[in-house]
C-alpha cells in the first residue's frame, strides 16, 4: 500500500531551483533513506511532503491525501521531525508532548497512555520535567521523535534523526526506526551511509534537486566503481561511500 507519493515535485526559491522533478513512492513496511550532498534539496522535499512548504509544481500525497488540497487529513497520518529537531525552549518535555498530543486531538487518557509508552520506548523519563533549553542534543532529538510518534502515524518523515547523536544513541535510534518499520512508511534523510545499510530497505540519492538513484542498498553498492588497486587511499572509504561519491560527483562534473 502506497503511503507516501510525490509526483514531479519542483520547488523554486526565486530563480533558484532547489527541488527539480522528484517522484517516488513509499509503501508500508519500507524505510527509505534520503541521501545527497549538502544543499541537495532533501529537507526542502521533506518540507513539501509534510505540507510546510508548497511546491512550485507537482504534488505530494500522504496515505492518498493531497498534502495541499487535503492537508488536514494528510497531516493526521503524518509524523514529522523537522531538520534540527526544533523545540520550544521554555517548555518542559512533558508539557511540550502533552501540547502536541492535545493539538493532535488525542483525549487526555489516550494521550497519557500513549506518552507513558513513548517515555518508556524512547527513554525520556530522566528529562521528563526538564525544560527543553536544558536538554542535550541527543535528548532534544529524542523528544523530536517522540513528538512525531505521539499519534502513532502511518507515515514518518524524519529529517536527520541521528544527527548529533553519540554512537550509542545512534544505535538506539536505528533500532527504534527498525522496530517501527513494519507498520509504517518511513523516510529518513541522513549523511551517514552506514545507516542506510543498517536500516533502509531503499535509498534515494538526490543532488542539486534531481533524483540520481532509487534502489536497494545492494543495488547501490553494485554501482560503486571498481577500485584501482595501484592507488592507495589516503582516507579509507566504504564501498557504499564510493557509490555515493561516484553517483553524486558524476552529476556535478557533467
Amino acid at each position: 500500500m502506497v503511503l507516501v507519493e510525490t509526483r514531479a515535485l519542483v520547488k523554486k526559491f526565486g530563480a533558484f531551483t532547489a527541488v527539480d522533478g522528484i517522484s517516488f513512492s513509499v509503501d508500508r513496511g519500507e524505510v527509505v533513506g534520503f541521501l545527497g550532498p549538502n544543499g541537495a534539496g532533501k529537507s526542502t522535499t521533506m518540507k513539501i511532503i509534510a505540507g510546510f512548504l508548497e511546491p512550485t509544481s507537482g504534488s505530494a500525497f500522504i496515505a492518498g491525501h493531497d498534502s495541499r488540497a487535503d492537508s488536514i487529513a494528510a497531516r493526521r497520518r503524518l509524523g514529522y521531525l523537522p531538520e534540527g529537531a526544533p523545540a520550544y525552549p521554555d517548555m518542559t518535555v512533558a508539557s511540550f508532548l502533552e501540547f502536541v498530543a492535545a493539538m493532535r486531538g488525542l483525549s487526555k487518557p489516550v494521550a497519557r497512555e500513549r506518552l507513558a509508552e513513548l517515555v518508556e520506548r524512547i527513554d525520556l523519563a530522566e528529562v521528563w520535567n526538564r525544560r527543553m533549553d536544558a536538554l542535550s542534543k541527543g535528548f532534544k532529538r529524542r523528544v523530536g521523535i517522540a513528538q512525531a510518534l505521539v499519534h502513532d502515524p502511518d507515515v514518518l518523515i524524519l529529517d536527520e534523526p541521528t544527527d548529533g547523536l553519540d554512537p550509542n544513541q545512534k544505535h538506539e535510534m536505528r533500532e527504534l526506526i527498525r522496530t517501527l518499520a513494519p507498520n509504517k512508511a518511513i523516510v529518513v534523510s541522513t549523511h551517514i551511509l552506514e545507516e542506510v545499510e543498517a536500516i533502509c530497505t531503499r535509498a534515494i540519492i538526490i543532488a542539486r534537486g534531481r533524483m540520481l538513484a532509487d534502489s536497494t542498498p545492494a543495488e547501490l553498492l553494485a554501482r560503486a566503481p571498481a577500485r584501482d588497486p595501484s592507488q592507495t587511499q589516503i582516507v579509507r572509504t566504504t564501498p557504499l561511500e564510493d557509490a555515493f561519491r561516484h553517483i553524486t560527483l558524476e552529476q556535478a562534473g557533467s
Partner: peptide, 14 residues
Amino acid sequence: RSGTIELLMTLPVQ
C-alpha cells in the same frame, strides 16, 4: 527563527 513553526504548521489544525 527557532524552526518550531514547522511543528506548528504541520499539525492537523487550521
